[in-house]
């Protein structure tokens, strides 16, 4: 695997685990406290998932980078794939942003707005990560 593939896989796995944990925590809180979802304290779990997930990712990225830093570890193929994949993910994230914005204008509860944004951006990162890995395995369209 190339360096880029490695950290992309790591990012996908960490992302999945972190977001799944977050969702479970929030749902469990709603059930055990008998609250409607909109009243659950989601801020703490989200902050923690960002800190822990982000921190783990940074550590693993650093570990991979330390292994390859003495050689050329990215080239024009990696850059092209990164650009191609980013376009794929940006569409999903953009949609999430638009929906969240409209929800705010319609005075939707902050819980939903924030979570649409959070989960939507995560789905966008899944899309771009998946596109990256598939571009490495199968190639990009000409």
């Amino acid at each position: 695997m190339t360096f880029t593939e490695r950290y992309t896989v790591a990012g996908l796995v960490i992302g999945l685990v972190t977001v799944a944990t977050y969702v479970v925590v929030v749902v469990v809180r709603a059930v055990t406290d008998g609250l409607p979802l909109t009243e659950v304290a989601w801020q703490g779990p989200m902050l923690w998932s960002l800190i822990i997930g982000g921190g783990l990712y940074a550590l693993i990225f650093l570990a991979f980078w330390l292994r390859v830093r003495r050689e050329p570890h990215t080239d024009s193929r990696d850059q092209e794939i990164e650009r191609y994949a980013q376009t794929a993910g940006a569409g999903m994230t953009g949609l999430a942003v638009l929906v969240a914005l409209i929800m705010m204008c319609l005075d939707a509860p902050l819980f939903w707005t924030a979570n649409v944004l959070f989960i939507g951006s995560f789905l966008g990162s899944l899309a771009s990560g998946g596109t990256t890995l598939s571009a490495y395995r199968e190639g990009m369209p000409a």
Partner: peptide
């Protein structure tokens, strides 16, 4: 935009 929004929302 997204990062700022999540922080402000939290």
């Amino acid at each position: 935009g997204v990062v700022g929004t999540l922080v402000l929302a939290m």
